[in-house]
Design a protein around this nucleic acid. Sequence first.
DNA 1: ACCAAATACTTGACGCTACAACTATTAGGC
DNA 2: GCCTAATAGTTGTAGCGTCAAGTATTTGGT
Lengths: 163, 163
Amino acid sequence: MTETRWLTAEQLSAWKKLIAVVELLPGTLESQLQRDSGLSHFEYFTLAMLSEAPDRTLRMTSLAAHTNATLARLSHVVSRLEKRGLVRREACAEDRRATNAVLTPAGWTTVVAAAPGHVGTVRETVIDPLTTADVADLDRIMGRILEVLDPSHVMVGAPTTDD
Amino acid sequence: MTETRWLTAEQLSAWKKLIAVVELLPGTLESQLQRDSGLSHFEYFTLAMLSEAPDRTLRMTSLAAHTNATLARLSHVVSRLEKRGLVRREACAEDRRATNAVLTPAGWTTVVAAAPGHVGTVRETVIDPLTTADVADLDRIMGRILEVLDPSHVMVGAPTTDD
DNA sequence: ACCAAATACTTGACGCTACAACTATTAGGC
DNA sequence: GCCTAATAGTTGTAGCGTCAAGTATTTGGT
């Protein structure tokens, strides 16, 4: 066991601010979405991923990867969304172990209605306080961190619009 | 109601990466602390804040602010930490409505033992992948975002070491 | 062709957090 | 000095996520 390498003052400052953002940001997004659309951020994100998929359909495993959830968590969430009529489950023809999650028309309507308010919050809290250069820096830095947290790039791929 | 201003490609890219980090980072920290020290990140953070306070003592309201928790949440957590002998509650002499949370010797030992492993994880996932310039950029950018999320700077102040 | 291991989920139980309701104490208005 | 409002904290409940266990199907070795 080698000696602990502590953080420099600059590193500590940056770290503390990052952790503060990580703690505060989810709550902010959560409140706005819950208040205006009755969705948790994870529910919104799930619907958004489906809305971008071909046929608005995704296998559970794939959807779990895109939303960074365990299969168990996703299964519970999809059950709730299904009860509310926003998502439908469908047996997969090619692999009978698999289940497809399909966005219903009501689900589509819900995401589309929720999107502007959500984007507004994202702007207010993150994008608008930053300059163009800041945004580029943020992109680069988060990219480097994700190289470690998500080496297989499961959560980055989606090159479409929305969210 | 004005029209929705959507995000540019650059903004969207940066946003998606930030949200991925926000989703993935807590789980990583959580796992390491739980595995190596039997603490949740919030419990660790609570103990760490107490360890930096004068007399290792803080009023519940103040501790709640430093950890960005509601009083209700903190009360539950302190109850559990108290059962494990890491924290002690103490009536406040000046204001009899108030309660002080005090770090016990066992609590101090626990944080001190947990810190190196935690810092190691922080290094691996966030600091080491970044250049010196990146760290400065990160500090600046998170600072701007916190200006919105935490205008009263409740979560930033603590100028001491640790964590 | 067969059997073990891997894959793709689902379900139930438990722990933690948010929300609401409640108690106790202090501060302010007049 | 009252009486109301604000402050400080605790507790119970309900909802969501994790973990462990279980089912169904497919893959791969021989």
